[in-house]
């Protein structure tokens, strides 16, 4: 019994902020990190000064600071979500080709992205629902998925109608192939890779309950 529940680390599923806090804690000190638009942006609220993390924004900056407020707002200083931000001491600016070379060249340690689906082998679908009348818009999603050394996904485990977003094979159009290394969800953290999917820890449920929800064979963390 104890081995079956040993990886449950929270009595309840995690909220968005708790999940962001967990991701922030898992980022190694000194890392260069890109946080995607939406839920991943919350991670920046929980990075500590001691961690000495440098944030990259793909429109052309390293050393991005928190969102700008009041008189700090400057139309020439925005992030990839087009939100006014601030610069920290030691920041640098560069053009778009350099910015994506930073990504594609494997210089970023971690990027954190949202997702519609992640597959058993770490394929990512997060840019397009595939609906015939939807206007496709990709932005930097494919570049981020392909370039960073580690790609962390943050999402709820289930869709609104209760279907697992962790799937055997993505049904939504792909953003990248085999690129996701970790999936942080409200109910569990999964490690993905060529050897399959391992459950690192669960929140408010057991390994068995997670296995019931996810339609692929999961492994226990050792």
């Amino acid at each position: 019994m104890s081995t079956e529940t040993s990886i449950q680390t929270s009595a309840k599923p995690l909220g968005r902020d708790e999940l962001a806090q967990l991701v922030a804690r898992d980022i190694a000190p000194g890392s260069f990190v890109n946080l995607g638009i939406g839920q991943p942006t919350l991670v920046s609220n929980y990075l500590t000064e001691e961690q000495n993390i440098t944030l990259h924004t793909e429109n052309g900056m390293l050393g991005m600071g928190p969102a700008a407020e009041g008189e700090e707002i400057d139309g020439d200083l925005i992030n990839a979500g087009k939100i006014p931000v601030t610069e920290l001491p030691g920041a640098s600016y560069f053009h778009h080709a350099d910015s994506f070379a930073i990504m594609r060249g494997g210089h970023l340690d971690i990027c954190v992205l949202g997702a519609f689906q992640v597959s058993a082998t770490g394929d990512l679908a997060n840019w397009h629902t595939g609906a015939p009348d939807a206007i496709p818009a990709v932005g930097g999603a494919m570049d981020l998925a392909t370039g960073a050394k580690d790609v962390f996904v943050m999402m709820t485990l289930l869709t609104r109608d209760g279907t697992s977003k962790l799937v055997e094979a993505c049904t939504y159009p792909l953003t990248g192939v085999g690129c996701v290394t970790r999936v942080y969800t409200d109910k569990a953290v999964f490690l993905t890779g060529p050897d399959g999917v391992t459950v690192r820890e669960t929140f408010g449920c057991s390994f068995e309950e997670i296995q019931e929800l996810v339609p692929l064979a999961l492994k226990r963390a050792e």
């Binding site: 793909e58 778009h96 080709a97 994506f100 594609r104 496709p136 990709v138 932005g139 930097g140 570049d143």
Partner: peptide, 13 residues
């Protein structure tokens, strides 16, 4: 519409 991933757009330019 020719849709291009942002980094590919930059590198193609």
């Amino acid at each position: 519409l020719e849709l291009v991933p942002q980094g590919n757009l930059a590198e193609r330019i």
